[in-house]
Lab assay of single mutants.
Amino acid sequence: KEYCRTLFAYEGTNEDELTFKEGEIIHLISKETGEAGWWRGELNGKEGVFPDNFAVQINEL
């Protein structure tokens, strides 16, 4: 499994977007979303897309 840590808080504006606080760990599902600048991940049981410049991939939890 791949993970990323959020660098900033983000408020999702669409139903398919994740909302998160700074410093949260998102399970990274895919970097290929069909839309440049967006990754797909899962946080707190919800799957959605989020801007990749708001997070950095990490090697271990």
Score class of each variant (00 low, 15 high):
residue 29 I to E: 02
residue 17 E to G: 04
residue 3 Y to K: 02
residue 18 L to Q: 01
residue 26 I to R: 01
residue 47 E to G: 05
residue 47 E to R: 13
residue 14 N to W: 09
residue 49 V to M: 12
residue 31 K to H: 05
residue 45 G to M: 03
residue 25 I to D: 08
residue 3 Y to R: 06
residue 34 G to S: 14
residue 38 W to V: 09
residue 52 D to G: 15
residue 48 G to N: 00
residue 35 E to F: 10
residue 61 L to D: 15
residue 27 H to V: 13
residue 7 L to M: 11
residue 1 K to V: 07
residue 29 I to N: 06
residue 14 N to D: 12
residue 36 A to T: 13
residue 23 G to I: 04
residue 3 Y to H: 08
residue 60 E to G: 14
residue 52 D to I: 15
residue 15 E to H: 14
residue 19 T to R: 08
residue 27 H to S: 12
residue 59 N to A: 11
residue 20 F to E: 00
residue 8 F to L: 12
residue 24 E to Y: 02
residue 38 W to Y: 13
residue 12 G to E: 06
residue 15 E to V: 08
residue 24 E to V: 08
residue 46 K to M: 09
residue 49 V to H: 05
residue 13 T to M: 14
residue 58 I to Y: 09
residue 44 N to A: 11
residue 47 E to W: 04
residue 26 I to A: 01
residue 20 F to L: 02
residue 57 Q to S: 10
residue 20 F to P: 00
residue 14 N to L: 07
residue 49 V to Q: 08
residue 31 K to A: 03
residue 22 E to C: 07
residue 25 I to T: 10
residue 36 A to S: 11
residue 16 D to S: 14
residue 54 F to I: 10
residue 60 E to Y: 10
residue 58 I to L: 13
residue 28 L to N: 04
residue 23 G to Y: 00
residue 13 T to A: 15
residue 8 F to E: 14
residue 6 T to G: 05
residue 61 L to A: 15
residue 56 V to G: 10
residue 9 A to V: 04
residue 6 T to C: 04
residue 33 T to V: 11
residue 47 E to A: 09
residue 52 D to Y: 12
residue 5 R to V: 06
residue 7 L to E: 06
residue 14 N to H: 12
residue 59 N to E: 13
residue 27 H to G: 12
residue 16 D to C: 11
residue 52 D to N: 14
residue 6 T to F: 00
residue 33 T to K: 07
residue 5 R to M: 08
residue 6 T to D: 00
residue 14 N to V: 06
residue 23 G to Q: 02
residue 26 I to F: 01
residue 44 N to C: 08
residue 11 E to L: 07
residue 48 G to W: 00
residue 35 E to V: 15
residue 61 L to S: 15
residue 17 E to I: 00
residue 37 G to V: 03
residue 42 E to S: 13
residue 59 N to G: 13
residue 41 G to A: 02
residue 4 C to W: 08
residue 49 V to E: 03
residue 58 I to T: 11
residue 37 G to P: 01
residue 16 D to M: 10
residue 19 T to C: 08
residue 53 N to A: 14
residue 26 I to K: 04
residue 26 I to S: 02
residue 48 G to V: 01
residue 6 T to E: 03
residue 36 A to P: 15
residue 4 C to M: 09
residue 46 K to H: 15
residue 42 E to G: 07
residue 7 L to A: 08
residue 46 K to D: 07
residue 49 V to R: 15
residue 29 I to G: 02
residue 34 G to V: 07
residue 45 G to L: 01
residue 46 K to E: 07
residue 24 E to W: 01
residue 38 W to H: 07
residue 34 G to P: 10
residue 41 G to T: 03
residue 47 E to C: 12
residue 47 E to F: 10
residue 10 Y to Q: 06
residue 48 G to F: 00
residue 36 A to M: 10
residue 15 E to I: 08
residue 52 D to P: 12
residue 56 V to L: 09
residue 55 A to N: 03
residue 57 Q to W: 05
residue 2 E to T: 11
residue 24 E to I: 04
residue 41 G to R: 00
residue 2 E to Q: 13
residue 60 E to M: 06
residue 12 G to W: 06
residue 29 I to C: 04
residue 41 G to Q: 03
residue 37 G to E: 07
residue 50 F to P: 00
residue 32 E to F: 11
residue 46 K to W: 02
residue 52 D to C: 14
residue 39 W to N: 02
residue 59 N to L: 05
residue 29 I to T: 09
residue 12 G to L: 01
residue 26 I to G: 01
residue 3 Y to S: 09
residue 28 L to A: 01
residue 56 V to A: 12
residue 23 G to M: 00
residue 46 K to P: 00
residue 6 T to L: 01
residue 32 E to Q: 11
residue 38 W to S: 03
residue 27 H to E: 15
residue 57 Q to L: 13
residue 61 L to V: 14
residue 34 G to Q: 10
residue 16 D to E: 14
residue 37 G to T: 06
residue 58 I to W: 09
residue 8 F to P: 06
residue 31 K to S: 04
residue 17 E to A: 09
residue 56 V to W: 06
residue 8 F to A: 14
residue 38 W to P: 02
residue 9 A to K: 12
residue 45 G to E: 06
residue 60 E to F: 09
residue 2 E to I: 15
residue 53 N to Y: 12
residue 58 I to H: 09
residue 46 K to S: 07
residue 47 E to M: 08
residue 5 R to E: 10
residue 33 T to G: 12
residue 50 F to L: 03
residue 1 K to N: 07
residue 57 Q to P: 15
residue 29 I to W: 00
residue 57 Q to Y: 06
residue 45 G to Q: 04
residue 30 S to M: 05
residue 17 E to N: 02
residue 3 Y to P: 02
residue 18 L to P: 06
residue 24 E to N: 01
